[in-house]
């Protein structure tokens, strides 16, 4: 019993020690609205594929109102600034941008897609 506990404790210690080597994962701004379109581990792993699949379904086949809409990501994952004005989702510190900067991914989606939900200026 104690051996198992020691083993487990040892394991946990090595895990935390290993994590400390990598740059700390930045905090992501909280989402608004309800639950994400899938569980967080699934989203972290699969969101790029989900979005690519969705864009073809919506644009080419006309399928709307389903799971991984980029418009919906922005609706939930964009935030308002201190002045209550919507902050572009591509701004530093924002949800997608923060993690992408960390993992060195640079999707170009927001060269075309709106970065806020509202009728932008």
């Amino acid at each position: 019993m104690t051996l198992l506990a020691r083993l487990l404790l040892g394991l946990m210690l090595t895990v935390t020690a290993a994590a400390a080597f990598a740059a700390d994962f930045p905090a992501l701004p909280k989402a608004r609205g309800g639950d994400c379109v899938a569980a967080a581990p699934v989203m972290r792993r699969d969101h790029a594929d989900m979005l690519k699949h969705q864009r073809d379904d919506t644009l080419r086949r006309g399928i709307r109102g389903v799971k991984a809409s980029l418009k919906d990501c922005v609706a939930c994952h964009s935030t308002d600034g201190a002045d209550a004005k919507p902050v572009p989702i591509t701004a530093p510190g924002q949800f997608c941008q923060t993690c992408h900067a960390y993992v060195a991914a640079k999707p170009d989606c927001f060269e075309c897609h709106a970065t806020t939900t509202g009728a932008a200026p």
Binding site: C112, H113, A114, A119, A120, P121
Partner: peptide
């Protein structure tokens, strides 16, 4: 472009 409409990227 900037300030696009959400329905027309």
């Amino acid at each position: 472009q900037s300030g696009q409409k959400p329905h027309l990227p």
